[in-house]
Design a protein around this nucleic acid. Structure first.
Lengths: 266, 266
DNA sequence: TTCCCAGACTTGTCTAGTCATGTCAAGAGC
DNA sequence: GCTCTTGACATGACTAGACAAGTCTGGGAA
């Protein structure tokens, strides 16, 4: 067996061995398989190595191998069916859903330079539409941040965010034109755990239209989101209005899992 | 122990026992826990019964219990953290992502009466924009179905769908004004396994505007989707233009999972 | 009172098996 | 050439353990 072609299972085992040793074995195997798909060694329609082959090649137990494959299935990368081989799905690569939250992180991974122009940062009593999602008492103070978000210098989105007072206090004096709000909060010990989003289409009002160099009434993709901390407390409520020609959302769904990601529009 | 209050673990075990017996145990347990959350017995922030408690109450192995909890985590219903109790997240109820595919199924679960008016069903050479997602050869024939979709009799969406010839053939003569295309296909043995969606905002062109009783240029939420069978072969490509005031998409994301669902706008 | 730490508890990881159930292709029989 | 049976093989479900690692609380020391 000195001059044979390496099977996908053996290549996966090799990648697992090469990978940094501190991640759990099932995660290392999952990234190894993900890598084989990314690199085109496993192509759409190809069968993934079976449980038995992966067990033999990696020396792991079948339960661990199945955990790795389950992760790929949840991501919509592969499809499993009882009795049939697990196969690679033909699908565009989607970034993890977490990109829905951070404009900065999303722009960077899409290969564009993110930016922002701060229109306003003020503390004032929250209006009902923001007090409710932030779970604030009537008339409680909240910080309101309005920014025009730029992609390679071009305005693509108007962000109108509100923060409960203790959170907003952390933003005063921060560099809001370049850094990410979430990076700033993370550096101050505020962690983001989950978010709720509502996506709809609206016509541009005159103010938003002016900020985005549009005519009033032109279509916008609106992403209203509320972001929560690990304890379930709301950290942010924001209404983001995107130029309709700037982005699209990609979603993949299957019986077993689904993914959603934002992407620039050509 | 004759007059004690039932613990959540015991209530879950009871629901597992009551549930229909043909589903796998881990699925039954997952729905039982989902039910406890739905019914408000477990409220946001509450800890879920621990693995040990569920094992004791249900008689299942810990691996099976963990599989059930993993499902809830993937749905964004609960949050887990090593060492800490699993807790219920505060989030609105979202319908399963699969609703993204079928207008009929979605409308019914939303409590509205779905309908359709067929504008056109013709077989013609596919134009490049539909041939590519359907993986058809240049100039190959495809069935094209244009329908105005109604919610309680009100037009809310224009659907422009294309089907490869063998699939479209199954639709000829079917009741396209009331039934679901997917139901029709399912009855003829065609199974839907996964879908890819691209969501964007566009202005209404004159034709679409007329069908939806809108003025040209008003905002539409566009859902372009391709639906695939179990073998990865494309079954349908459709561009759905929704009245901007008719629907929104809800999404939930957390570090561990995400959900997306369509909802009517008030 | 405050701080720190030990220890109980909880979730995460992994193993090594068994049995169930669906798929698929090769070969037998027509 | 065709259909149908059969059996190897695949994934799914489940069990029963062991150990690792993070969390949280109560009690003792400063």
């Amino acid at each position: 067996m000195s001059s044979h072609v390496k099977s996908p299972a053996e290549q996966a085992a090799q990648r697992v061995a090469r990978a940094a040793g501190d991640a759990p074995a099932h995660e290392r195997l999952a990234s190894a398989l993900r890598g084989l798909i990314d690199d085109g060694i496993l192509r759409p329609g190809d069968p993934l190595p079976g449980d038995a082959a992966l067990v033999a090649a990696t020396g792991l137990a079948r339960g661990t191998v199945r955990q790795a494959v389950a992760a790929l299935r949840a991501e919509g990368l592969v499809q499993t069916r009882q009795g049939a081989r697990t196969t690679v799905l033909a699908r565009p690569r989607l970034q993890p859903f977490s990109e829905l939250v951070s404009f900065t992180a999303w722009a960077r991974q899409a290969g564009a330079e993110p930016g922002a122009r701060v229109v306003e940062l003020v503390r004032r009593p929250a209006d009902p539409a923001t007090a409710e999602p932030l779970q604030l008492a009537d008339g409680a103070l909240a910080w309101t941040l309005t920014r025009v978000r730029l992609l390679d210098g071009v305005p693509v989105m108007v962000e109108r965010a509100a923060y409960p007072e203790p959170i907003g206090d952390l933003l005063v004096g921060a560099d809001l034109e370049h850094g990410s709000v979430y990076d700033t909060l993370a550096a101050r010990g505020v962690e983001v755990a989950s978010g709720h989003h509502r996506i709809s289409a609206v016509g541009a009002d005159p103010g938003t239209a002016a900020l985005l160099n549009l005519r009033p009434g032109e279509p916008l993709l609106r992403q209203a989101r509320t972001v929560f901390g690990p304890d379930g407390a709301p950290l942010e409520h924001s209404v983001d209005d995107w130029r309709g020609d700037a982005i699209a959302l990609d979603a993949v769904n299957s019986a077993q899992g689904n993914r959603l990601a934002r992407r620039p529009r050509g």
